[in-house]
Design a protein around this nucleic acid. Structure first.
Lengths: 142, 142
DNA sequence: AATTGTAGATTACAGTTGTAATCTATGGTG
DNA sequence: CACCATAGATTACAACTGTAATCTACAATT
């Protein structure tokens, strides 16, 4: 620990206080794990490579970072690790959505939908789905 | 330019090819400018400080970065600059929303709304607004 | 048992970001 | 006209990111 500045030390000590932030690339990894877990690093690589092209080394790095951030954990199975999420997908997605809506739309969904409607990014199908969601909501809120 | 690696050079040459990325802090600045422009750095600081606390130096740095990224431009007025956006607020917001929805919800709005409904983050007011948006949409799409 | 492929650990490295402090030049003030 | 406050320019700097290459150790194979 030689050469560590006081600031670094303090930063480290209060690390746990900070809200955990998952970067975009890390989220892709997390998402692949959520698909089915526990799973190996190879599983993750394979899943990701169905869509895009991820270098195995990159995926390993990101898995390591997610472990350090305590977003996932692993269990040793002889040669390889079995990874598994420590955070819930729905919870995470809600939190992220909430943050996003706060930053851009005052925290509400409707302005987003309105903005999509205005720029013609809303299809009949989207509207049908929205109507269904609304009627379900009304069903359970009276 | 001595000591520049080939990779750096290439990165720089193809710089314009990359989609411009505005960071979160930069977005706050942009947002303050969109409120009313042209405006000075001081205007931006004042506007931001109505809500949060921004250091003047930080704001200046971010203004500089936005200029470099060609997200805003300025015009000299003797001692100070008059800043003004180079990107349209609605366009930017739509693009960001689209990206966000692609990353988390397969690109569609309804799953976001559904997820909000499920976690009880939807108020009667939100629902009323959504209904209004939908009926307006249907009005103009038949 | 020696060898080797491979899994994870460590190291690399430039770019971005948040957050400012310091430098420099100039317009306004006494 | 000299001086200074201040605006913008430059510099700082650690953390985070994306993207991998290299190192190290062990399990499976011959």
């Amino acid at each position: 620990m030689a050469g560590v500045t006081l600031k670094q030390l303090i930063t480290h000590v209060i690390y746990r206080e900070k809200a955990m932030e998952v970067s975009k690339a890390e989220f892709e990894i997390l998402n692949a794990i959520w698909a089915e877990y526990p799973c190996t690093a190879k599983d993750v690589v394979d899943r990701l490579n169905q869509q895009d092209s991820w270098h195995e080394k990159t995926v390993k790095t990101l898995l390591g970072r997610l472990v350090k951030k305590q977003a996932i954990s692993f269990e040793k199975r002889s040669r390889h690790y079995l990874y598994q999420p420590l955070i819930d997908k729905n919870e995470y997605i809600i939190k992220e959505s909430d943050n996003f809506l706060k930053r851009l739309f005052g925290g509400k969904v409707s302005p987003l939908v309105a903005s999509f409607a205005k720029s013609e990014k809303l299809s009949q199908n989207d509207v049908d789905e929205l109507k269904k969601i609304i009627s379900d909501w009304e069903q359970s809120n009276d």
